[in-house]
Design a protein around this nucleic acid. Structure first.
Length: 378
RNA sequence: GGAGGAUUAGCGAAGUGGCCAAACGCAUCAGACUGUAAAUCUGCUCCCAUUCGGGUUCGGUGGUUCGAAUCCAUCAUCCUCCA
């Protein structure tokens, strides 16, 4: 019995989007779904109770960061990540592959793994497929990610090809060294940059290995949106229909909807939480920088169409004041709202799929969001 | 009444003859943020101009000088000490 299984409930007649259900050792959830990011075993400023209140079903955490601090052995001793952070719903951990990309200053990628330096103290570190599995086995998430290389954009064809082929070999090694396949699902990550042939190659090679789920990586790394959608268009049809598909690192409202329309089941992104802490919010009427002076005397809610805790109780003027004053409560309130907004939007996407009207929903949403003719999106 | 010190852009504070429209910090205003090195980062803030550039500034006034935030005189205000 696989640790994680996918059940296709129905396909939207208007778009081909999938309504599904994913079963994990820590509960089931309907897809498409958005997963809040809690890199250091906490979704910044949110308590698990907050997350449950807004109906988050699965959150992310990070192999690299928890390896460095507090250390995966400590989390194992604590009884695993779920217990350690008091979250009894599903958890997915990223493998550290993205950190190899984002902490790219000092790194050396070899066949065996990656040498790089700790961002905390400069220690020399080495991460490999086997090490990433060892750490994730200790952390104990429901879903763990294969150790991959997220190629930068732009990157030339030869580089991306070489990189993706290595990522495939690494995926194989991950599979071999994975110690807990009975209760932890290992997802592989399709790479290939913006090259159609390479996306196909990566998808074909990885799907031949029968992972319980597939992610699409290497997108939302600075490329124009239409390239991301093209990459999805070429990749999605090659992935098995009986397994979840996870688009990594995508979180702007428009991209979530566009991704769902192309058959993506899972998304994660730091965008809602990060921009919230910097004073920007997502509303049904578009992006709203509540930090701006024009909201100084605006005593209405952030989003009049929102029923979240923040919008029910606090005004734009108050949020602006808190953010301007560096009050932690302000970070909490905007974070709460942004997460609630995306979670709620995805619930509406699922309803729209159920009723075969996702395209209508998309058009209406985009119009309200003020981006009907805006390709740059968020 | 006497002696000394101070006064710089919204605030604090450098600058003591040209490289000064004036460092730096804060505040302000705006922008960025997409598998989190991020409650972070970038830019703006005398006036006009999209750029080039132009015009007015360093308590007030008057002077010295080719040239003054910087030197001199004087006035104003504040602080410290002595009577």
């Amino acid at each position: 019995m696989a640790a994680v299984t996918y059940e296709l409930i129905k396909t939207c007649k208007q778009t081909g989007a999938r309504l599904g259900r994913v079963h994990t050792p820590h509960g089931s959830f309907e897809t498409p779904i958005f997963m809040p990011v809690g890199t250091l075993a906490t979704v910044k400023t949110m308590s698990p109770e907050d997350l449950k209140e807004m109906e988050a079903r699965i959150i992310l955490s990070n192999t690299y960061h928890l390896w460095l601090r507090p250390g995966h052995e400590i989390i194992r001793e604590a009884g695993g990540l779920h217990k350690f952070m008091n979250w009894d719903r599903a958890i997915l951990t990223d493998s550290g592959g993205f950190q190899v990309f984002s902490l790219s200053d000092m790194r050396k990628i070899e066949e065996e793994g990656v040498h790089f330096r700790s961002h905390l103290n400069g220690d020399k570190l080495f991460l490999s497929p086997e090490k990433a599995m060892e750490i994730q086995n200790a952390l104990g998430p429901d879903i763990m990610m294969a150790f991959d290389e997220c190629a930068p954009y732009p990157a030339d064809h030869a580089y991306v090809k070489h990189s993706l082929e290595r990522t495939t070999r690494w995926a194989e090694r991950c599979l071999e060294s994975h110690a807990r396949p009975h209760d932890q699902a290992l997802f592989a990550i399709v790479q290939g940059g913006m090259y159609e042939d390479l996306r196909k190659q990566s998808a074909m090679d990885l799907t031949s290995m029968d992972f319980p789920g597939y992610a699409i990586g290497g997108l939302s790394v600075g490329e124009p949106k239409h390239l991301m959608y093209e990459a999805l268009d070429t990749t999605m049809p090659l992935l098995p229909t009986n397994k979840p598909r996870y688009l990594m690192g995508v979180g702007s409202p428009d991209a979530l909807i566009e991704g769902a329309m192309r058959g993506v089941d899972m998304f994660d992104c730091v965008l809602p939480t990060r921009i919230a802490r910097n004073g920007t919010t997502m509303t049904s009427q578009g992006r709203l920088v509540v930090r701006n002076a024009k909201y100084q005397r605006d005593f209405g809610p952030l989003d009049p169409n929102c029923s979240c805790y923040t919008c029910k109780n606090y005004s734009r003027a108050y949020l602006r004041h808190l953010i301007k004053s560096d009050e932690t409560f302000g970070l909490r309130l905007t974070t709460y709202h942004n997460l609630h907004f995306l979670l709620n939007m995805m619930a509406q996407v699922r309803e729209a799929i159920r009723e075969d009207r996702l395209r209508d929903f998309r058009d209406e949403f985009f119009e309200n969001y003020g981006m009907a003719n805006n390709e740059s999106g968020f």
